[in-house]
């Protein structure tokens, strides 16, 4: 069972930009790519907690505004040689609206301390 919430229209997010939304005390960054796909990540850079929503978006990546780590929007992982990963949230687009999965769930962790990949991180289209 999962609970989804409508958060905005896709046009509310600038292409190659992001908006933030707070869900149960966590700030989530919702990104839009040039080709109108949407991804959601926890708004905390794995480096020193920089707000990823404020970074420059390019392709399927965002460059953190604080020290320039490059984070993948699809997997939340930092580009080598940096290491680290931030949480991902399922999003989908329905009739031009962006829906975010808001089911509270404990962050799954592997032995390495990385967040476990989640099965449906993105539903694109719309």
């Amino acid at each position: 069972m999962s609970e989804w919430s409508r958060i905005c229209a896709i046009s509310d997010i600038p292409a190659l930009g992001a908006r933030v939304v707070e869900v149960a005390g966590t700030t989530i960054a919702v990104f839009r790519t040039a080709d109108n796909r949407v991804f959601a990540l926890r708004d905390r850079c794995p480096h020193k907690g920089g707000p990823l929503s404020q970074g420059i978006v390019h392709g399927e990546q965002v460059t953190c505004p604080l020290h320039g780590w490059v984070i993948g929007l699809r997997d939340g992982a930092a580009e080598a040689p940096d290491e680290g990963c931030t949480g991902r949230y399922p999003v989908r687009i329905v009739d031009g609206d962006v829906w975010l999965e808001v089911t509270p769930r404990p962050a799954a962790r592997t032995a390495k301390g990385r967040e476990e990949p989640q099965a449906r991180s993105v539903v694109s289209g719309g």
Partner: peptide, 18 residues
């Protein structure tokens, strides 16, 4: 304006079984 406003989770929500 969008630059300075955060989004809010609307009351519209939907529960799916997957």
């Amino acid at each position: 304006r969008h630059e300075f406003e955060s989004l809010r989770v609307t009351s519209e929500s939907e529960v799916t079984r997957q």
